[in-house]
Computed example of a mutant assay.
Amino acid sequence: MTERADLRATAKKYALFFEEVTPERIEDVHELISDDVHFIDPFNDVKGRANFEKVFHKMYEDVQEPRFNILDLAWSGDLCFMRWDFTCKQKLLGNWGVRGLTEVHFDKDAKVCAHYDYWDASRHFYRKLPVVGAMIRWIASRAAI
């Protein structure tokens, strides 16, 4: 059985990875994640270490100056929740940011085996896009009280 202290140490290192990641340091996550890690965010649903890394490489292709600020870690048993702010510059959106939450699961070796991001892509991304954003804003206004 994995010690809770091991999980907490991995979670802290994992949070630090996000705060310090650069294109040259993406592979630093290898020691923290399992070979078959499952990653889900509003744009991706991938499995495996190589695909996890591709998500980061794609991020660096799509945006400039991406930055994660980890606000806190919270625990429910062996499940870690990581609350964060993400900011970047994006060609279509300009300066852009979002607050989100990540659900982090660990395997028996205290490695991250699942990373599930939760953030409102409609409000914080799609509504800001030309054409699509206008349609989403209209639909949202029709559904609101």
Rank of each mutant, 00 (worst) to 15 (best):
A140H: 07
P66V: 02
R127I: 00
K54V: 01
T102C: 06
V98P: 14
W138C: 08
L79S: 04
V37I: 15
N51L: 12
V55H: 10
D117K: 05
Q90M: 08
D109A: 06
A5D: 12
G97Y: 03
G94V: 00
S76E: 04
I139F: 03
D45A: 06
G94F: 00
W138I: 02
E19A: 13
E53N: 12
A143I: 05
A74D: 11
A9E: 14
D28V: 01
W119H: 08
D45P: 11
M1A: 12
D6Y: 01
R49I: 05
P130R: 09
E24H: 02
T10D: 10
R4C: 02
L92S: 04
C80A: 09
K91Y: 05
D78N: 12
K91R: 11
D85S: 12
E24S: 10
I33Y: 03
A140P: 10
I40C: 14
S34L: 12
A114C: 08
E27D: 15
L93I: 01
A50P: 14
S34R: 07
C80D: 08
M82Y: 01
S122D: 02
T87V: 08
L16R: 13
L7M: 03
I145W: 00
F81S: 12
F106R: 09
T22S: 13
C80H: 02
W75Q: 14
P23K: 01
G133S: 03
P130L: 05
V37M: 15
R49Q: 10
A50M: 05
I139M: 03
A143V: 01
V98R: 07
F81A: 06
L92Y: 03
H38G: 07
W84C: 07
G48V: 06
D45V: 01
Y14D: 12
A74K: 09
T10Y: 04
F106I: 03
N69E: 06
L7C: 07
T22M: 11
R123E: 15
L71P: 13
F39A: 15
D109H: 02
E24V: 00
H105G: 14
H115G: 08
D35V: 00
M82V: 00
L92Q: 15
H38S: 15
A5C: 01
K47D: 10
Y60S: 09
